[in-house]
């Protein structure tokens, strides 16, 4: 009996975790963070001098956090269909993200060697590039799936 209670409690906590969503107002907060970060990225690239690598890394983190907030926030009217569409978009983003992470380094390597003799040495993608791509694919597919539903 005690064991059943523990299992039920764990199951409830697990479902709470997987059903976690931020409220709709967080969508605007996420968009604001993303836009502000992009503006700051341009400012850093074209208007700032000196060693600003730390700022670049910080802005990359802010961009990911902003997009994650957008991804996790609910719609104005959340129903079972939007939940299914969101689940589908996460599945697509995962698959496309893994393919991107596997294929893109070879594409970059090939292109750089074709364009310039010698080219760049082979290197894997960074976490920022992969995560940004996956979040972009998820948001794009979710909104497209909603549009064509």
């Amino acid at each position: 009996m005690e064991m059943e209670k523990i299992i039920a409690s764990e199951r409830n906590r697990f479902y709470k975790l997987i059903n976690f969503r931020l409220s709709y107002r967080f969508m605007r907060i996420g968009i604001a963070i993303v836009l502000l970060t992009i503006v700051m990225m341009f400012v850093r690239a074209f208007a700032m001098e000196g060693d600003t690598v730390w700022l670049k890394v910080l802005l990359q983190k802010f961009l990911l956090v902003g997009m994650l907030i957008m991804s996790l926030s609910k719609d104005k009217l959340e129903d079972e269909m939007t939940i299914i569409l969101r689940t589908q978009s996460y599945a697509i983003a995962l698959v496309v993200g893994v393919i991107y992470a596997l294929v893109m380094p070879y594409v970059e390597f090939g292109v750089s060697n074709v364009m310039t003799s010698g080219g760049e040495s082979f290197k894997n993608l960074g976490d920022f590039q992969v995560l940004l791509f996956m979040l972009m694919v998820q948001l794009m597919f979710y909104h497209n799936l909603k549009r064509y539903r």
């Binding site: 009217l77 269909m81 909603k146 539903r149």
Partner: peptide
């Protein structure tokens, strides 16, 4: 029934099969 108009439209067009609850 507490869903969006687009969901009703998708159900009517047979693009979406609703849950038992719906």
């Amino acid at each position: 029934i507490g869903v969006s108009r687009q969901t009703i439209n998708s159900i009517e067009a047979n693009r979406y099969v609703p849950s038992t609850v719906l």
